[in-house]
């Protein structure tokens, strides 16, 4: 029953809707990177961009019945987790020294 129900999700929704959705999410993430000054929100926007790419990879994987793209999504998740751990450690270290995470203040890399 669920197999029939979920199978219709791929058939009823054309791939271009997924392309449009993930392009929109990626653009919002890119906008956030350019728009915000808080370094943590910039990190969050980068996560949003990574997730847009993940969504499109999973969509193509389902349309082709190919598991390789879903394995790539695993690797992207692992890289994102590593990136967030190191990035937030750097940011908290900077905050301890500079007392700010405004990227316009941090543009010198030294203080």
């Amino acid at each position: 029953m669920t197999g029939i129900l979920l199978q219709s999700a791929i058939i009823s929704t054309p791939i271009e809707w997924y392309i449009l959705l993930s392009a929109a999410l990626f653009t919002i993430g890119a906008c956030g990177v350019m728009f915000k000054r808080n370094a943590i929100i910039i990190f969050a926007s980068v996560e949003l961009m990574l997730n847009a790419v993940n969504l499109l990879l999973v969509a193509f994987s389902s349309y082709h019945s190919d598991a390789s793209a879903q394995v790539f999504v695993f690797f992207i998740m692992a890289v994102a987790a590593a990136e967030v751990a190191v990035g937030l450690a750097i940011l908290s270290m900077i905050y301890r020294n500079v007392k700010s995470i405004d990227i316009d203040v941090l543009s010198k890399l030294r203080h």
């Binding site: 129900l5 219709s8 999700a9 929704t13 959705l21 919002i28 993430g29 929100i41 949003l48």
Partner: peptide, 20 residues
């Protein structure tokens, strides 16, 4: 499932805008 796609897309899009 089409309705679910529209609903989830709407939520994802709106909340992504609110993030920024």
């Amino acid at each position: 499932t089409q309705y679910m796609f529209y609903f989830l897309s709407f939520v994802a899009f709106l909340c992504a805008i609110m993030v920024v």
